Amino acid sequence: MQRASTDIDPGLAVTELSDHLNGLLADVFALYLKTKNFHWHMSGPHFRDYHLLLDDQAAEIFAATDDIAERVRKIGGTTLRSIGDIARLQRLRDNDEEAVSPHAMLRELHADNLTLVAAMLEAHHACDDHADVATAGLLETWIDQAQRRAWFLAEAAK
């Protein structure tokens, strides 16, 4: 473990926060790839709208990856190094189905975003336990973004 650039106590706090953030990072990569998968394989009468919606959401999801990984490093932890790390840590399930209906895609992404929110809230509680206000602030932004994505997906799936 390297020396942190923050005032977070090294040791258990860094380990616990890094574990939460690395789990989130793995989930965010998994959600990004699933969102792009559905974007690439979208079809049907609402193709254009759903295709663009998922592309916008994928870009927002991917944008969080660097911030999550850099936060782990700032607090003194180490972060993911490979697709194998992602596979070991991700909690969101992949979708390798040959064909998925547009409605099923939207419902699945909706549920995944809500699962991500729950994991982010757990991480936020750990931040509270260790007085890590900077990570908590980042999490609040990411929670809001995931809730917004879930809302859009739920409305589009009606």
Results as ranks from 00 to 15, higher is better:
1 M>A: 05
2 Q>V: 13
2 Q>E: 10
10 P>A: 12
10 P>D: 09
11 G>F: 08
11 G>E: 08
13 A>F: 02
17 L>H: 07
17 L>C: 03
17 L>R: 01
18 S>P: 06
19 D>K: 13
21 L>K: 04
21 L>A: 13
22 N>V: 00
23 G>V: 07
26 A>H: 04
27 D>F: 02
28 V>I: 14
28 V>E: 00
28 V>Y: 00
32 Y>W: 12
33 L>H: 06
34 K>V: 09
34 K>Y: 09
35 T>L: 10
36 K>Y: 06
36 K>T: 14
38 F>M: 04
39 H>N: 09
40 W>H: 08
40 W>N: 12
42 M>Q: 14
42 M>H: 07
45 P>N: 08
46 H>K: 12
46 H>L: 08
48 R>S: 10
48 R>L: 14
50 Y>M: 07
53 L>M: 12
56 D>C: 03
58 A>D: 05
59 A>V: 09
60 E>Y: 00
61 I>E: 02
64 A>N: 02
64 A>Q: 12
66 D>E: 15
67 D>N: 10
68 I>E: 02
70 E>W: 00
70 E>R: 00
71 R>W: 01
72 V>L: 08
73 R>M: 11
73 R>Q: 04
74 K>N: 00
76 G>K: 01
77 G>Q: 01
80 L>H: 03
81 R>N: 09
82 S>Q: 11
83 I>G: 06
85 D>C: 03
85 D>Y: 06
85 D>G: 10
86 I>S: 08
86 I>E: 10
89 L>E: 05
90 Q>H: 13
92 L>M: 09
92 L>H: 03
93 R>E: 15
93 R>K: 14
95 N>T: 11
96 D>R: 08
97 E>I: 04
100 V>R: 05
105 M>P: 02
106 L>I: 05
108 E>R: 06
111 A>P: 01
116 L>R: 05
116 L>M: 13
119 A>D: 12
121 L>S: 12
121 L>P: 00
123 A>K: 04
123 A>T: 03
125 H>R: 06
125 H>S: 13
126 A>R: 12
128 D>E: 14
130 H>L: 02
131 A>H: 14
133 V>S: 08
135 T>H: 11
135 T>S: 15
135 T>W: 10
137 G>W: 11
139 L>G: 04
140 E>Q: 13
140 E>P: 00
141 T>P: 02
141 T>F: 00
141 T>Q: 04
143 I>E: 07
143 I>W: 09
144 D>V: 06
144 D>F: 11
145 Q>W: 01
146 A>S: 11
147 Q>T: 11
150 A>T: 02
151 W>Q: 08
151 W>L: 07
152 F>H: 12
154 A>D: 14
155 E>D: 11
156 A>K: 05
156 A>M: 07
157 A>H: 07
157 A>R: 05
157 A>L: 03
